[in-house]
Amino acid sequence: MTTLLIGIFLLSLLVITAVAIVRSEDLFSAVMLSGIFSLLMALNFFLLDAADVALTEAAVGAGVATVLLLAGLKLTPPTEARGRSLRKLSVAVIAATTLLMIYASFGQPTLGDPNAPAQQHVAQWYIEKTPELIDIPNIVTAVLSSFRGYDTLGEVFVVLTAGIGVMFLLGGGRGKPFSRLDSRVEEGLSGHLIPKVMARLLIPFILLFALFIQFHGEYSPGGGFQAGAIFVAGIILYSLVRGEGLALSVIPPRVLLWMSAGGALLYGSVGLAGILMGGQFLEYSVLADNPVTGQHIGIIVIELGVGLTVTGVLLSIFHAFAARD
């Protein structure tokens, strides 16, 4: 009951924040509010027992997305033009659809109903078979990387494609991905003492935590997606404080591009290795003599591939935005 009430409180805050984002004409405050929105969303996910999703949303939504939107805002006007006021027709359509959806919700199973159709299908099979077939404690990681490995492979390629698209639109061209950067000397926030000291204390722990999330993802909430996002957040913090030039000399552009493509390639080649060793595409059981050990090897390697791609793509996107002027 308490959880339900806390949930209702957080969800109400979520709606208020969303309205504030839409209403504010100052885009800077809208971006800051969207960071708060993501954090509230992460708390809601946590209350709904989705620890992995909450971790991802907190790292990606509240961390990386906010910085990317700010970087985009640096290049575009910071305020919204005062345009037409509320349009009656769109308000009417939206209100009618909202009411219809709320009406339709009365046919939905209530929150947490164990007999809901969503719980009857394959979910039970995943929960029962994970200890036997894969033998790792985190069922989410097991489903993500083994049972539904095809899905995840596709999503890694979507992330890679989006990264390539951003590099085409904003990158500096062949051989010099972020070429506009070296035209000026970047100092970042190094003149400000407090951010500098705080960042110096925090960054090693953020990077260490990212590695923990990466390699402990089979036992606790985590995995390649979250680890990549947290690692990127650490490096972005470094570039904000010490300047992007220095961050790029830590992880050079060439390495970033190789990470993006190499991660996806690593994932795909695990699939091909499965074929070569007599199994099917992305069948990890054949990778070792013992099928369960094979699953472990496959999961660790593809999570590494996911982590590499996510880190490479998100960091390239950040640098592409930051280098533009």
Binding site: L144, R148, D151, A162, G223, F225, L314
Partner: peptide
């Protein structure tokens, strides 16, 4: 149910990209 969690976990990262 782990399945919706898996779908959304990957969707968040695809969403930011």
């Amino acid at each position: 149910n782990p399945l919706p969690q898996v779908l959304i976990l990957t969707a968040i990262v695809v969403g930011i990209s």
